[in-house]
Write a protein that binds this DNA or RNA. Structure first.
Lengths: 204, 204
DNA sequence: TCCTTTCTGTATTGATCGATACATAATTCA
DNA sequence: TGAATTATGTATCGATCAATACAGAAAGGA
């Protein structure tokens, strides 16, 4: 069923990816329509026809970010054979992703919109929800470790999930400050040192 | 030597404090001149006469924040008898400060301006410098712990300072997400668990 | 009292914000 | 081929941005 009317002359998916990069680098409020249209290679009427509004474009961009940029970080959680390795791989992939050159540093979900009082309530709510989901994913993996007997029954999964999620948020700010990969890995080393004490299981 | 000309009719220090609270809640770019003048109870010409520009006002506000709001957090570093207690008090004071009601949550220095690409280069540089100073303060306290024999000679002060500074940054985002004090203290507990492994000294 | 200096309030500046009106171009359907 | 539909480019909308011009008010110095 071919579409009616004049066909679109730009690649919607490619334009969305460019928009994601602009939001990633500048945040929701810091990214102006001029920034977006310039990066996307289109005029504002095309943007509004294809995406609806700046807010809707941002929500699509974060969805793309979650689906594309976060896969290596979060798939590590599932692939790792133990909870301990899951957390360590998760943090190491974070350090790697946050220090890659040629793209914005840190995480769009963590840094995209932190000041609720502005006119971006829905944006802040969406990012907050995604951050909460990240903690939930950590929590589930830790609880699996308890269920499988890797971790003691009294292991405090909630505390550990909160802690590691918070460490990852901090790494976004660290990365924005220009931290090298080795500096980010120092944070990982510190966070994994906590594991030893929390789980009572040594060995590196 | 009395001042020439018509005297100012508002309290400059009180107005600066109001401005600090607005920047704290909304960030540098999110705080408009209208927001600022409304909170300060003055008109924009008075703001410019007294502070110079929005940028200069922000720099004064961060200086005030560092001097007033951070004292309990950073004085804990010096007062604590051991490096271990210094870090723990530092984190506990952070959890307490970041979860106080009736004021913005999280840290102005950590959250005030994270997107450099905007037109706020000097602002971002100033905040980044202050964040680096915070890590340096942690580093000095840890090195003192080594010098005093509390910590082993091969204790990696740099890694630990980076780690704890990053945890504090993460706690700002956690606080912005509405985390309760007990949730922030979970992060503190996780971070202090790392101490046991890093320093090789147990006991709570 | 008059002059100088500084602050205050009103009104406004040019620039930029997010979002659209409108005419034209390009396609499908009948 | 003509009508309907959708996209594009130009040009612009009212609102808001940070920052000021200007005239009047309130002080000290002469």
């Amino acid at each position: 069923m071919p579409e009616r009317g004049r066909p679109r002359t730009f690649d919607r998916a490619a334009a969305l990816r460019r928009a994601m990069e602009v939001f990633w680098a500048k945040g929701y409020e810091g990214a102006s329509l001029s920034d977006l249209t310039a990066a996307m290679g289109i005029n504002s009427p095309s943007l509004y026809a294809a995406f609806g509004s700046k807010e809707a474009l941002f929500l699509e961009a974060t969805e793309l970010y979650t689906r594309v940029e976060g896969t290596e970080i979060w798939s590590a959680l599932e692939k790792a054979p133990t909870a301990r390795q899951a957390i360590e791989w998760f943090l190491r992939q974070t350090a790697k992703a946050y220090s890659q050159t040629g793209r914005p540093q840190g995480c769009l979900i963590a840094l995209g919109a932190l000041h609720q009082d502005s006119s971006c309530g829905a944006i802040c709510d969406d990012l907050r929800r995604r951050r909460a989901e990240n903690r939930e994913a950590l929590l589930r993996r830790l609880e699996r470790g308890v269920a499988e007997g890797e971790l003691p029954a009294d292991f405090d999964c909630g505390t550990a999930a909160t802690f590691y999620a918070t460490v990852q948020h901090g790494m976004s700010i660290q990365a924005r400050d220009g931290a090298s990969r080795s500096a980010l890995l120092e944070t990982v080393a510190g966070a994994m040192a906590a594991w030893i004490a929390m789980a009572g299981t040594g060995a590196a």
